[in-house]
Nucleic acid binder design. Structure first.
Lengths: 217, 217
DNA sequence: ATATGTGAATGGGTTCACAGCT
DNA sequence: AGCTGTGAACCCATTCACATAT
């Protein structure tokens, strides 16, 4: 077991492992090998074993990993067995889609408050939450112990909103605005940016003209 | 100039450069140095210069880069000066949010068709597009020359929908379903997965308890 | 027999540092 | 003088291969 620093790329892969293990559990599989996991995730068995070795020894030599056990361990390491109080800033079309997305809550990310700077939004309700003005942000974040902020405001406002969230005590930001915001070193930020994804995809699509689709017989 | 293989990480960064250059152009800046770009993107100047060197020599020694010129070059390399016919599969809440998102079209990604397997959706219109049954997929993809598919269906259907898109001739997939789909080697896939992002974030938030926020004086 | 856990080897991306151009 | 372009050095992640456990 390696108790040193864990590479960021490894941490990024852990949730993927948890997800596959959940699927296996659902199917009724009790044991998996790193070979099987590798096939499901399209990665080498060695990488999976190495990744896991940063956190402990979870397998049984000759057998493999107990699905339920490994899943619980990884969930604990990631803190997925906890509730994470979350808030949303920006309740436009995108914000509404986010708050109504049924995938966050079952994973422990409870959106407990919604904010918007538009006076017209005040008094309205989104996903069962009363939309609050930005002036309530500090108080609500403190009162509800909110540690994660989801940012769904226009690009021009994103940086300042993120600054306010951080100042209010939020340490994690999920940003949907197409910008590269600056945050303090002790703040974790993740950007959801489908346009960037598409724009790097087209590079490869361009090369494709006449790519090896299938060898002629 | 290095005409060999370009690392994938470099391609992933190019759209970021384009975006910053667009901002600079908008502000009226005509010239930038790799130092300035590095400060804006929080990366080292050396990395920016190295990245660009894979594609050519775009700067002027002693001066820096002409913003407009570099932006045009990078847009050309990525194929962003082209129109990319795109389709959407899945017009549920998420799909509707995607099709109404105003960020795709101005970047050249035109959603020209929408599909859904739900019979109740047939005949309805989403974002100005008539929702088509899945049986029309092959024909429409061919007829409109669609090369990119956006997948916003439930997890259980995602893999089969992606398979159908690929078979229909689509070479790029933007997948919103929380799964890790398998695609042929000549197909490019990008996953938009905010839950995974949050789940790797909590690992660091957990470590934070008592983290170095500021040194005591 | 079979599959983990892990040092060692490998490979690839980032940073350095300086030659070269303006 | 100032900043790019780039081989070389460095660093870190992945893969290998085998000792080890069941």
């Amino acid at each position: 077991m390696n108790s040193g620093e864990v590479p960021d790329v490894v941490v990024l892969r852990l949730p993927l492992y948890v997800r596959v293990l959940s699927q296996l559990l659902h199917r009724g599989d009790n044991v998996v090998s790193s070979d099987q996991l590798g096939a499901l995730l399209q990665m080498t068995p060695a990488q999976i074993r190495k990744d896991l070795s940063y956190f402990g020894r979870f397998g049984k030599q000759g057998r493999g990993y107990d699905v339920k056990f490994l899943r619980e361990k990884l969930r604990g390491i990631l803190g997925l067995d906890l509730k994470w109080p979350t808030c949303l800033v920006g309740v436009g079309r995108l914000g509404q889609a986010i708050i109504n997305y049924p995938g966050f809550v079952p994973e422990g990310f409870d959106i407990l408050a919604a904010f918007d700077s538009d006076p017209e939004q005040m008094g309205t309700t989104v996903g069962g939450l009363a939309v609050q003005p930005m002036s309530c942000l500090d108080e609500t974040v403190a009162a509800k112990g909110i540690s994660i902020g989801i940012v769904a405001v226009p690009s021009a406002q994103a940086q300042s909103v993120i600054g306010r969230l951080v100042k209010a005590g939020v340490h994690g930001i999920l940003n949907y605005a197409p910008v590269a915001p600056q945050v303090p070193a002790d703040t974790v930020i993740r950007n959801v940016d489908p346009v960037l994804s598409l724009q790097s995809m087209t590079f490869y699509l361009m090369q494709d003209r006449g790519a090896p689709l299938a060898a002629m017989p």
